[in-house]
Design a protein around this nucleic acid. Structure first.
Lengths: 255, 255
DNA sequence: ATGTCTTTGTGAACGCGTGCACAAAGATGG
DNA sequence: CCATCTTTGTGCACGCGTTCACAAAGACAT
């Protein structure tokens, strides 16, 4: 995840904790898989295992949405898919623009996970005139001069920034000025935005650095253990969800 | 950011909280920028602003590493860069393999943020025989038949999975069997790994879904406010780091 | 209808992370 | 050498998130 946060004020959205909101997409994916296999109902235990979380946590998460389960039976898969989709706002169409069509921007444009969740790539924007008109993922790239017009014409409220670091803040400012209120930032920069605009950050380098930290620690422990005459650790197989080198921490965050 | 977690057991690595570890790369980036401008020292207040965090939090984070500041002056930039780099394990070389050279894999191979932090792309691996030998980012793609040999020959301990969802778990199993102990997963799947292996997950679709949730909420509030006769909200500019629609939550997590 | 069994929904306790506010430490000037 | 000023390092309190453990609720069989 991106990185570095502060607990949000008292504005808890409609009583649903942020931690829960972040898990809903995870549940939704697991439920969608069950739905495709025509599984009618699922218990909290089963679904929790599929999503890689604690079953009590899952039940508490669902309790924030309402009482959608049946005691002694479990949850109705289709009904839950609908409720979560509605809660996340996925029942409506979200036009999205991607700014910065380099390798990453092109990869995002081609990413299939967007369309399947109600997200529609409305436009691809790049500052390089040579890119203009060139189709990427079947969509012609438009020049950034037209950014404002594109945003307004398509009613875009979500923007994805995949530009180099230096261009990110100016692009962000223009997106916000044009009406975008949610930004997913892949550029390695801290963006400054007005109140009311949400920013989530994904930083690939930071993720690797966190892994490196734990990798180094493991190497150190192993060496220490070897020095003690004891062998390396490593035990039984476990679901990665309930251990993790990092417990919680976001490499993707609001910022 | 990837998603869904559980607090790690009591194994707090060398006393450094996970939340702190996740912020160290952020500080490092800000410090590197200062270093390039030849700024000799920086106060916690200034650095915190650059990294988008609370200054007290920053000081407490640094206190876990030791007392590297000078009261009345601040922190020595170069020294702090070195200490954080060492703490994160970036002073050593980390060979990394990327498995799955589609759009995303290619984008990762070309990503400049890796090399600059001690990460070296040792090999690109893909299951498609047609890709074999074809250079991506100047590195010839190798066939997945040779995965185990590549891992061992290069002493790789960190693997990046950018395959389709279906291939992720088998690839993960082979990586782990070959000796990889840290995995960065871009495939939309919950990976199961043995104890001792760290997994971090980055899910682009989940990030957008979280944004959509808040976007929907904002739209609802605005409508409600309009119905009350009051105008939309939106106030002054603020640094996004200390508000956020999501406070904390990780879309990237251990799982 | 009644009893048993399964599974949900949640009260309560605990722990981590955050941020305030201040004392201690050092620099700097007279 | 002393006074003042800046900035660190941290004790403390607060709140969120997680987890346990159990009572309530419904299904199902008899």
């Amino acid at each position: 995840m991106a990185t570095g946060r502060t607990h949000r004020p008292a504005t808890r959205s409609r009583g649903i904790p942020e931690a829960t909101v972040a898990r809903l997409p995870l549940y939704l994916r697991a439920l969608t898989a069950l739905s495709e296999r025509s599984v009618p109902t699922v218990s909290s235990e089963e679904l929790a295992a599929a999503a890689g979380v604690n079953s009590a946590k899952l039940r508490k998460d669902f309790s924030y949405l309402g009482s959608y389960g049946t005691r002694g039976v479990g949850y109705d898969v289709e009904y839950l898919v609908y409720q979560i989709s509605r809660e996340l706002g996925l029942t409506q169409d979200w036009p999205v623009v991607i700014v910065g069509i380099g390798n990453l921007g092109a990869a995002l444009a081609n990413y299939g996970g967007f369309a399947s969740r109600g997200f529609r790539v409305a436009a691809l924007i790049d500052a390089d005139p040579a890119m203009a008109g060139k189709p990427v993922a079947g969509i012609p790239v438009q020049h950034s001069d037209d950014l404002e017009k594109i945003i307004e014409d398509n009613g875009v409220s979500i923007g994805v920034i995949a530009t180099p670091a230096g261009a990110a803040q100016p692009v962000c400012d223009r997106l916000v000025a044009a009406g975008v209120t949610s930004i997913l930032n892949f550029a390695p920069t801290v963006l400054s935005v007005p109140d009311g605009v949400d920013v989530r950050k994904v930083d690939l380098s930071i993720e690797l650095q966190i892994l490196a930290f734990h990798e180094q620690r493991k190497a150190g422990e192993e060496a220490a253990a070897a020095a003690d005459g004891a062998g390396p650790v490593v035990a039984g197989r476990s679901d990665s969800a309930d251990k993790g080198p990092d417990g919680d921490v976001p490499a993707v965050m609001p910022a």
